[in-house]
């Protein structure tokens, strides 16, 4: 198990080298350059050239790449071209904001999605099954931005129950410790701010949870249907076990591996791809951070930001693979 984990972590190296190369060239392939983006269209060619030289972008690409990777190897993600701030420091609050949002969304998606899938499989072809599966289909096909706007319109604008944007009260900001506000306010014992943080999370996390919830519900249902036809389920019933335990004990653990795979992939997508939700709800997350960096041709921020997301994605999948072995004793990693 340990040897396997180490091997998988080593495999991260070629993945990251590949990723860094791809991002390095892709961002440079976009028309426009950082100097123009920073100085504006009207800047003189001399000024632009001077800035380009100052940023080190006049060097040949391999020099730039080697320098960048050299920094990475020392744990240095580089400095933003635009703000000159170290990216490691700049990126963390954004990453924490996205992490908090994605985690809450994922909890909603898993709790509702898995249970809807189970009940649909248990009462196959019932009205619950049909309703849940139609809703799941609607869920995967609904544009997030539309759902987000509707939420804001109904719950913030019309009913006024919940705040429509941001993650804190701008006039009374939360003191950051980890930048995961639910955690920070708990540490500080400030339950009023905890409530504020929670209220701000509700609408965006529901919007973000919709697609994973639908995907998880459908995956759980089909996996459960397959498992519930198997011989050992008949054995469990022949023992006189209650249907609830036949479903939640005997079936679910067997059906969970494909569901877990889906959860892992969706979690990765949420961390990297929450851009739309973050934009609609003005959530200061990593997606918005990178999009802004792309607009300013902030090469280093884009490179490092995407590399961080890729690493998280790979790590999540590693964790998922390790969890397989915890669920199914037949899976052994050597």
């Amino acid at each position: 198990m340990l040897a396997y984990t180490v091997r998988r972590l080593l495999m991260l190296i070629p993945v990251l080298v590949g990723m860094s190369l791809i991002v390095f060239f892709m961002i440079r392939a976009i028309p426009g350059d950082p100097a123009t983006a920073i100085l504006g269209e009207k800047a003189s060619p001399e000024a632009r050239e001077a800035l380009t030289e100052q940023l080190g972008l006049n060097e040949p690409w391999y020099t730039q790449y080697v320098e960048y990777v050299g920094g990475l190897l020392q744990g240095d993600l580089g400095e933003s071209l635009r703000t000159n701030a170290p990216i490691t420091e700049e990126l963390l609050p954004f990453l924490a904001a996205t992490f908090e949002l994605a985690l809450v969304a994922m909890i909603i998606a898993v709790v509702i999605g898995v249970n809807a899938g189970i009940i649909s499989a248990w009462f196959q072809n019932s009205w619950f099954d049909y309703t849940a599966m139609v809703l799941a289909l609607v869920g995967v096909s609904m544009p997030i931005f539309w759902l987000g706007l509707m939420e804001q319109w109904i719950f913030a604008q019309e009913l006024g129950w919940l705040p429509s944007i941001g993650r804190e009260n701008v006039r009374d900001p939360i003191d950051p410790i980890t930048n995961i506000y639910l955690l920070d306010t708990l540490i500080q014992g400030d339950f009023e701010q905890l409530g504020t943080a929670f209220k701000h999370l509700i609408l965006p996390s529901i919007a973000l949870a919709t697609i994973p919830m639908a995907v998880i519900a459908r995956m759980t249902r089909s996996s459960m249907l397959e498992v519930m036809r198997s011989d050992y389920i008949r054995t469990a019933r022949a023992k006189g076990q209650k249907m609830f335990l036949v479903v939640y004990k005997h079936s679910l653990k067997n059906a969970f591996i494909p569901v877990l795979t889906t959860i892992g992939l969706q979690m990765g997508l949420l961390l990297g791809g929450a851009v739309l939700t973050e934009t609609i709800f003005s959530w200061p997350g990593i997606g918005r951070y990178i999009i802004e960096a792309i607009n300013f041709r902030d090469y280093t921020v884009v490179q490092s930001g995407i590399l961080v997301i890729a690493t998280i994605f790979v790590l999540i999948n590693l964790i998922v693979d390790l969890l397989y072995a915890a669920i199914d004793p037949r899976i052994k990693y050597q």
Binding site: D231, R234, T235, A236, A238, G240, N254, D328, P329
Partner: peptide
């Protein structure tokens, strides 16, 4: 299970693997 017990044809698949 209490009054009537039952065993099946396929011992390989009739026990819960997990």
């Amino acid at each position: 299970g209490g009054k009537i017990g039952m065993i099946f044809q396929e011992p390989m698949t009739s026990l819960n693997p997990v």
